[in-house]
Amino acid sequence: MYFEIQGTIEDIEPIAIGSSIRDLSRLKKQFGPGRWRKLKGTTNVKLGNGHVRRAEVHWYEAHGIGKRKMKIKRFLD
């Protein structure tokens, strides 16, 4: 599903850090080594059909690498 983040991500919370991430070896292989964290937050997203909805998003992030593998987990409205 294609979407764009509209505005800022709020209420950011860590879900997993370092070795507690299930996909850690895949992340290191694909994007490089780093202090990987899995995070979640809420934001407005613009969907492919043009609708804007409030959603909870999850993503992986490492210092110097940035946000990767962002996905919509559920809609909040």
Results as ranks from 00 to 15, higher is better:
residue 76 L to C: 09
residue 74 R to S: 11
residue 74 R to A: 03
residue 15 I to W: 00
residue 56 E to F: 01
residue 63 H to I: 07
residue 50 G to W: 08
residue 3 F to W: 07
residue 29 K to P: 01
residue 19 S to Q: 13
residue 50 G to Y: 03
residue 62 A to N: 03
residue 56 E to T: 03
residue 47 L to E: 05
residue 59 W to S: 04
residue 36 W to Y: 10
residue 62 A to H: 02
residue 33 P to T: 12
residue 65 I to F: 02
residue 36 W to S: 10
residue 72 I to A: 06
residue 38 K to I: 10
residue 34 G to D: 07
residue 74 R to E: 15
residue 53 R to Q: 09
residue 1 M to W: 04
residue 28 K to H: 02
residue 52 V to W: 00
residue 8 T to H: 07
residue 9 I to S: 03
residue 24 L to P: 00
residue 22 R to A: 14
residue 61 E to T: 03
residue 57 V to R: 03
residue 57 V to F: 07
residue 23 D to F: 01
residue 18 G to S: 13
residue 74 R to Q: 13
residue 31 F to M: 11
residue 46 K to F: 01
residue 5 I to K: 04
residue 77 D to W: 04
residue 76 L to G: 04
residue 73 K to C: 05
residue 40 K to A: 11
residue 32 G to P: 02
residue 67 K to V: 10
residue 23 D to N: 13
residue 64 G to E: 13
residue 2 Y to S: 14
residue 37 R to D: 06
residue 45 V to A: 11
residue 31 F to L: 14
residue 43 T to F: 03
residue 38 K to P: 00
residue 33 P to F: 05
residue 68 R to M: 11
residue 27 L to H: 03
residue 69 K to C: 14
residue 21 I to C: 06
residue 17 I to G: 06
residue 76 L to S: 06
residue 70 M to T: 12
residue 25 S to D: 15
residue 69 K to I: 09
residue 49 N to F: 01
residue 2 Y to G: 14
residue 45 V to L: 12
residue 14 P to E: 15
residue 35 R to K: 08
residue 8 T to C: 03
residue 49 N to P: 00
residue 58 H to R: 11
residue 64 G to A: 10
residue 72 I to G: 06
residue 22 R to T: 13
residue 57 V to H: 09
residue 20 S to A: 14
residue 56 E to L: 15
residue 37 R to C: 08
residue 16 A to E: 14
residue 72 I to N: 01
residue 26 R to F: 09
residue 60 Y to H: 14
residue 38 K to F: 00
residue 17 I to V: 15
residue 4 E to N: 06
residue 10 E to I: 08
residue 73 K to S: 07
residue 3 F to D: 09
